[in-house]
Computed example of a mutant assay.
Amino acid sequence: MGTAAALEKLVPVLLAFGGGVVLARRKIVPAEASKAFADYAFLFAVPCYLFGNIYASDLGTLFNWRAIGAYAAAAGVAVLAIVFASGAHGVREPRDVALRVMAGVQVNTAYFAVPVFITLFGTAAPIFPVLLFQVCVLSLVVISIMELGRAGPAAGGPGQRLLRAVGASLSTPLVLACNAGILLNLLSVHVPKVVLDGAGFVGDSASPIALFALGLHLGGLGLDIRGTGREELALIAFKCLGFPLLAWAVCGLLFGVRGEWLTYLVLIAAMPAPQNLFVFAQRYDVGVDLSASLVIKSSVVSLLLLPVWLQTVAA
């Protein structure tokens, strides 16, 4: 796949994001409104999207357990690497570390990987097992840390605060939607078509609304390419180069994953930082400017490197 083909598929992404930038810079829509749009995406639209798509999927054909286990192992090593590097550079506040882990390990699925995979393979089905792993494991850990960090010091002991944080993370619409989709799918529970149609209608707005929110924020803030700091460069390099190489080594060399699944996993790892990074940062008021910058800059770098990764892994 060439860069032109990828850009053609990403025109809707660029349009939604660019609209937010233009409206914010012209002060037609205030940049502060990005918080409301981000909350809508996080609390409502994305859960609807996940529930409908997971419920309608054939889960049995989506899960290659060796491949998914290998990817989870690679992600675990990547998490440890980022935690160690963050501590070595003086970043020790749990919410700040969790945000950096999310930036370096989680990937942009719905807004970037889906159109790329459809272009390359004619289907985005291989993405869904990784999406479930991200939401039900990685995001659960990140949300727990964020909720725990938001609790005040007078809110009880560490044990009580941790239990409340885990409970709050498990009850978020994002996690509930995934678990409900999996459970109803496995139990073959009939969900009325009108409910699925409604979830699909709302879910289709998740991507443009979240991207529009990001555009509004950056339109008001501005994006300084020359002022990219060392930490940003390190996180972008790890996300777009380090993590894909790690996935290739762990999945291919240690777990013996071969063929199409190795290609799928390396390409998924090479996707940019997730759109939800900005949504989480907005919601928990931590690293908002850093997250917005990482999402956009890693998207550009990832787009340029995709043809290289495809040729390297397929060779």
Results as ranks from 00 to 15, higher is better:
17 F>M: 13
66 R>L: 00
79 V>L: 08
5 A>S: 14
99 L>S: 05
16 A>H: 02
300 V>D: 10
168 A>S: 12
165 A>R: 09
42 F>V: 00
294 L>R: 08
67 A>T: 02
202 V>K: 02
92 R>Y: 08
161 R>M: 09
147 E>F: 02
65 W>L: 07
236 I>D: 15
143 I>G: 03
1 M>I: 15
115 P>E: 01
79 V>Y: 02
15 L>N: 08
131 L>G: 01
214 L>M: 08
69 G>Q: 02
157 G>F: 09
165 A>N: 09
90 G>T: 08
3 T>K: 11
264 Y>F: 14
121 F>T: 05
213 A>R: 09
64 N>M: 00
247 A>V: 01
18 G>C: 11
50 L>Q: 01
149 G>C: 13
69 G>I: 01
295 V>K: 05
70 A>W: 00
34 S>I: 14
168 A>Y: 09
299 S>D: 09
161 R>G: 15
301 V>W: 03
287 G>L: 10
144 S>M: 14
182 I>L: 10
214 L>Q: 07
224 D>L: 03
223 L>W: 07
256 G>P: 01
154 A>N: 08
115 P>R: 01
148 L>W: 06
45 A>E: 04
203 G>L: 01
58 D>Y: 05
140 L>T: 13
222 G>C: 07
235 L>F: 05
188 S>E: 13
234 A>M: 03
274 P>R: 10
130 V>T: 06
